[in-house]
Computed example of a mutant assay.
Amino acid sequence: MAVKLKPLSEQVIVITGASSGIGLPTARMAAKKGAKVVVAARNREALHNLVNEINASGGRAEFVVADVGVEEDVKRIGEAAVAAFGGFDTWVNNAGISIFGSALEVSIPDMKRMFDTNFWGVVYGCRTAVAHFRERGGPGAIVNVGTLFGDRAPMVQGTYAAAKHAVHGYNDMLRMELEAAGDPITVSLIKPGRIDTPYNEHARSYLDKQPSHQGMVYPPASVAESILFCAAHPKREMYVGFQAKFFVKLAGIAPRFTDKLMEKVDYPTQHDERPSRDVEDNALYHAGYGLQERGTNAGWKRPRSLYVKVQKHPALTWWITIAGIGLAAAAWNANRKVNAKPGVA
């Protein structure tokens, strides 16, 4: 069943994790496109200032102080949207936090707390959204923010990747169940590569050096663009940065080659040469600083993701995907020939 979603200018959009990073430009961009927004996070001051900014610019916004790891808080977000605007049309599960540390080093309480936010927050948000859309009887969109690491786990951020793997699985299951039931609800998954946000500053770090994105880094506005496209157009998934899509395809075709590659590059590309922030200086258990879209990453900062724009046109996406699969296949073939040489294990 084809689902026809409202244009953004006619929507009410709920955005979690809206006080900084990806959620912040998503709220600002949605308001500029005419949508009413309900923003949620733990940082009251940042949310208050964001709502004042949007309303002063002619938009309409409300905020809810909430911890998405608490089910009752998530239900309050939905109730606030109904009270302020009569309901909502899109729910964006964006709130998230990371931990930098080895799989055997990160404490179990830290792992559980991160799963509360990154996985259970998505589950609570999806359930709240589905209940509302079913009660209202009209179309609705759920947009879940995943990650490249939800398809292919790295070292150093294994706990974060495990939670995002769970999000990706839940997203797929929910999409199929709703479609099979005939519900006019779309479920989309956003898969960003490395994004220039305060993600690393908010993360809990067990490292000696400061977590920081190296390599190609994309602006949070590109993720916001993909989120809002999915809010108005039924779309299964969108990648932010073609290298994210390429890496997933490479891992599927040449998993051992990808293992070896990541063993070499994961650690040095996830920190810079500054001393790490104190292990207690993070946003895992309490709100981090707000109203900052960008972080202090040292990578190659791209002005936009052209691949996001390409994915809005299915024919172009198909051809680029085929090209990416071809490149991944070539890499696998080269690796196979190397391993086939005498004396090479």
Rank of each mutant, 00 (worst) to 15 (best):
N200G: 08
H286V: 07
D272P: 05
Q270E: 09
V187R: 06
Q311S: 03
A30P: 10
Y170E: 05
G288H: 10
R302M: 15
A231P: 06
S188M: 08
A328W: 11
V279Q: 03
R175E: 14
G140T: 04
I325D: 12
K209C: 12
R204C: 12
W319P: 01
A162H: 06
E263Y: 08
S19L: 03
M176V: 03
Q11P: 00
I77A: 15
L47K: 04
G23R: 03
C230V: 04
D172A: 14
N55T: 11
V37N: 01
S188Y: 02
V265G: 01
G78L: 00
H165Q: 06
V123E: 13
I185L: 03
Y160F: 14
H48M: 06
R60C: 11
N282A: 15
A40W: 00
V143C: 05
A283F: 15
N43D: 15
G58A: 15
C126W: 03
G146R: 14
A323H: 07
S226P: 07
V122Q: 00
P154K: 06
V265P: 04
N55C: 00
A254W: 05
Q11F: 09
K341S: 13
I185C: 04
R134G: 08
Y285T: 04
F119E: 13
L284D: 02
M176R: 09
I322Y: 06
K36G: 10
V143K: 10
G125N: 05
G158I: 06
D110Q: 10
Q214V: 08
A334I: 14
D89I: 00
W332P: 00
A83W: 04
P25W: 06
T159R: 05
D278A: 15
Y239W: 08
A40I: 11
G137L: 13
T159N: 11
P234F: 02
M262W: 11
Y206K: 01
P220G: 11
K191S: 12
V265D: 04
P220Y: 09
T117H: 10
M262T: 15
N94F: 13
A323F: 15
G34Y: 14
Y307W: 09
W319M: 03
Y307A: 11
P255A: 02
A328H: 11
I142E: 07
N297F: 02
P268Q: 10
G101D: 07
V92I: 14
S276C: 01
R175G: 13
G252T: 08
A84R: 05
M29S: 00
A95F: 05
K33R: 13
V51A: 11
S212K: 00
V64L: 09
L178T: 00
A153W: 01
L178P: 00
V265A: 09
R336M: 08
A244D: 06
E105L: 14
Y285A: 04
E105K: 12
H165W: 01
A81N: 10
H168R: 08
A345V: 12
L327N: 13
P255T: 04
A345R: 14
G215V: 12
A340D: 10
G158T: 14
F133I: 09
V64P: 09
V64Q: 13
R194I: 01
